[in-house]
Design a protein around this nucleic acid. Sequence first.
DNA 1: AACCTAATCACTA
DNA 2: TAGTGATTAGGTT
Length: 103
Amino acid sequence: MSIFAEKIYKQLKKIPKGRVTTYGFLARSVDSKAYRAVGLVLSKNPYAPIVPCHRVVRSDGMIGGFMGKRDGQAVMKKKKMLEAEGIVFEGDSVKDFEKVAIK
DNA sequence: AACCTAATCACTA
DNA sequence: TAGTGATTAGGTT
């Protein structure tokens, strides 16, 4: 862990229910262009329940999941969770992404 | 201690 | 519109 990750989590915890953010935003928010690092850190997610890593999506609004390949199951679950929070999905992307996304 | 991998984003042709 | 490069952190060997 590092300050980088801590900031990410801090920012992530600030995300209200029914709202999402992007890896890019988090990365820019803390450092500059550690986009990957954000996802990396989230994947480890030491703050399991407090850090809603499912509220983090790609800059396009797509869920993302894993790079290139889609794990599928985990992503789908996240999708469900998001939907439960009021976020509407359109396929693998967030509907009204620009409205719910914090950027 | 070093190397390899990984949830992305942005820029250029 | 498509393709490639850049950058950081974490885990493993």
